[in-house]
Amino acid sequence: MGERVRGSSSDGAPEPELGLNLSVVGAYSVISVSGEIDMYTAPKLREAVRQLTAEGRMHVAIDLTPTEFCDSTGLGVLIGARRRLTDAGGDLVVVCTNPRISKLLDLTGLDKVLDVREAVPDE
């Protein structure tokens, strides 16, 4: 049920992996993100959200619980995903219990813009 997405490089060097596990909880399609979200790996997350919306799945949760690191590029993807989903009549939930990422959301004020929760709504 999960899908792992591995980076590749032209010179064959090992790349940091961004793990994207897809599941469904209640009304939400959940992308559980493990590894490090930065400007190199963030496009994979952006693409995963886009794929879900293309399939008509407009209630999306991005679960950052297993995420080891997230930078501003990752935050940019969250903002973009929220915008696309709300424009299409859907919504984005961000699941975050990691104190480091919570601090980032707080620093940037995104904790007030994004729907940040401790778990995926299961109703």
Binding site: P43, S72, T73, L75, G76, V77, I79, L104, L107, T108
Partner: peptide, 15 residues
């Protein structure tokens, strides 16, 4: 992607 890059550049300084 471009919009998000623009956002990211601004967010880097905020962070």
């Amino acid at each position: 992607a471009i919009e998000e890059d623009t956002l990211s550049e601004e967010i880097t300084l905020i962070v």
